[in-house]
Structures are given as structure tokens and as C-alpha cells.
Design a protein around this nucleic acid. Sequence first.
DNA 1: TTGGATGCAAAGTATTTGCATCGGG
DNA 2: CCCGATGCAAATACTTTGCATCCAA
Lengths: 180, 180
Amino acid sequence: MPQAESANATRHSNPKFDSLARNEFILLFAVIDAGHCTHLFGDEKVATQNQDLKDAGLKVTLPRVKILQMFATNDSGHLSAEDIYKALQETGEDVGLATVYRVLTQFEAAGLITKHNFDGTHAIYELATDDHHDHMINIKTGEVIEFVDSLIEQRQHQIAAEHGLTIVGHSLVLYVKKAE
Amino acid sequence: MPQAESANATRHSNPKFDSLARNEFILLFAVIDAGHCTHLFGDEKVATQNQDLKDAGLKVTLPRVKILQMFATNDSGHLSAEDIYKALQETGEDVGLATVYRVLTQFEAAGLITKHNFDGTHAIYELATDDHHDHMINIKTGEVIEFVDSLIEQRQHQIAAEHGLTIVGHSLVLYVKKAE
DNA sequence: TTGGATGCAAAGTATTTGCATCGGG
DNA sequence: CCCGATGCAAATACTTTGCATCCAA
């Protein structure tokens, strides 16, 4: 299996979802939750009119709306398919687990969210941001803590360069516990 | 799922295999392939007599022997359960896939090998070494390259400490391609 | 002899896919 | 109305487990 489905894999990687352009999803996102999330997309043009959505030819369906809202409002921001599915059920929404997986796959292909494999059993997703950040996982509590360190980033590129390689993506996870 | 089954999880983590002490496996290992592998265990006392194996009360079975040999002789040193299973079949050995998984789990619990989840689909194992090393994966070829960087190691501990945390394990994977 | 180790098949868990139906545009 | 999106159930991929048998000590 040569191709690595990395947590930091390239955007637009899945050919199956070429038709779903990132910008179209941003439009969708903007309409749904404009106030909350515009800052996530920096200087990218963010539409705020339903008319734009229609222009994009994208269907604003209930599962997509709800799932985006969950990422936008959940305080951890790190959700598994199961998390989302159960939360939807609790709010009385009739959304199938398969749809949750499909929507997550599409959002990832569109570059809206990022997929992580912290424990090798189930994937965790979070809203994609422009900056690279890494994660610490508290093995006692399961808590996920984000951090950024330019020194490590820099060193990584240096190491790759020393091998004549370019970094396409990376995944750094620290498994931690409270210092005793 | 609070507990992270990290690629760098603690040794002896699985209570189910407490009876299989690391040293017992080292004895087994030594007998099987003493010349090849003694260097892996540094200054640890390595027995070279079958008598020691018997003292340890450990059964030297064909699947265990064969699988250890594969890790010792395979040049990549990074093997999946499927890799091992297929290789065994090709050499005519009658070893079940379930046994491969069981042996790998035991070896990991004994601290002899380390488990990685590079791509979230299937686990990869390699012989455990005393030093921490990280991995680069060439996304074009699937090649796995090991590297060590004390600067990054150091920085990681610093970052954890700044949050009042201690690092239990870590996983750093760089997804790379040949620099163009 | 005897309890641990194994092979096989069945069960699990996480995720994907086929297909008829539904619904946004 | 149409084609993409969905729900459901079946299928898949990887891994674990139950159980009768086997074998190293």
C-alpha cells in the first residue's frame, strides 16, 4: 500500500470528489455559520448570501449543515464519526452513520477538515486551519491539546532536506500525562 | 476511549501478558538468533544457552521463532501482520494469521517490538531499540526512513513541561517525496 | 502428562459501498 | 423533473476471540 492516507494528506486528494470544490464548501460554510467561522479562512473571499450558494450548484442539506455546525460550536473541535453520529441522534436528527462518514470524507477532500489517526482504531477530525499545529494527548483523560512550534517545524524541513526530500505532510503526537 | 494505544506506548502495557516477561523473550531471541541480535540489547544480559530458555519456562515454538527471524533478517525491518503471514506462507510454513497477530501482540507487550499506525489502516511493527527514532515515509514509494533528532526530542519535552505535562510516548511521522 | 500455543472459523470494530428512495434547485 | 444526497443493509478491511487440538517441556 504505497500511498499514505496521512492525517496531513494533500488537499483535494480524492479524485472521487473533484466535483466538490473547496470554495463551494466555503460558500456553504459561510452561509451556515458566517459569524462564527469567517476568521478560519483568512483573506479568502467568503460569501454571505444564499444566492452565492445557488451559483455554486451545491446542495445545502441537513446533514452537511448540522455536521459543520458541530465542528464550529464544539469546544474540543476534535470529533470522531461516532461522536457526530451520536450527537445527531441525541438532538433527534435522523442522519445515518454512513452519511456522516460520506460527509466527513467530502469535507476532508475539500480541505475543510483534517483527519487524524491518533490511536489507530478510529479517526478524529477537526476544522482545517492554515497553520500547522500538532497535538498532545493526555493518556489519562483523553484530552487533546494543540500546540505550534516553529522550531520543530523548521528542523523537520531541514532533516528532510538533508535526505534530498520534501515534506508533504507530517503528524506529530505527544502522548502525555500530568507531571507528578 | 481515553487510553491511547500509541505507537510508542509503554512497555508491559497489556496486563494479559504479564506472565511473558521481557527477559524471557530476550532469552528466546538470543537462542534463536544470537549472533544477529545481541547488539540490540546493549548491556542487557543475553543468554546463549538453551538451558536458560528452559529455566525461563518459555516455549520456543515455530511461529515465534520464524517471526523473530523475519524481523532480524528483513532489511526494511518494518512489517505488517499481513506481510509476515504471506511471507510465512511462501516459505511453506503453516502458521495462521491469528497466530501472527497473537505473537505480535505478545512481542509488543514484552517490549521486543514496537507498533506504529502510519496510515490508520494497518499496523506496522519493528524491532524495539533503546533509542527513540522517528520516521519519514515516502508517499510515492512507501519506503520508510528512520531518523533521530535530539533537538526535536528536547523541544518536545520542553513544550510538554510548559504545559505541566510529562511525555509518555510520542509519534512523529514525516510524509515526504523526493525534492524536485 | 499438562497447560500454554496454535489453527480455524466466527465475532468484533471501524469504515465503505450498493441500491432504492428522497429532496434541493 | 433530475441528479445528487441520503438511509439502510450488506460488504470490506483489519484485528480479536472461542474452542478443540497440538506440542514443548
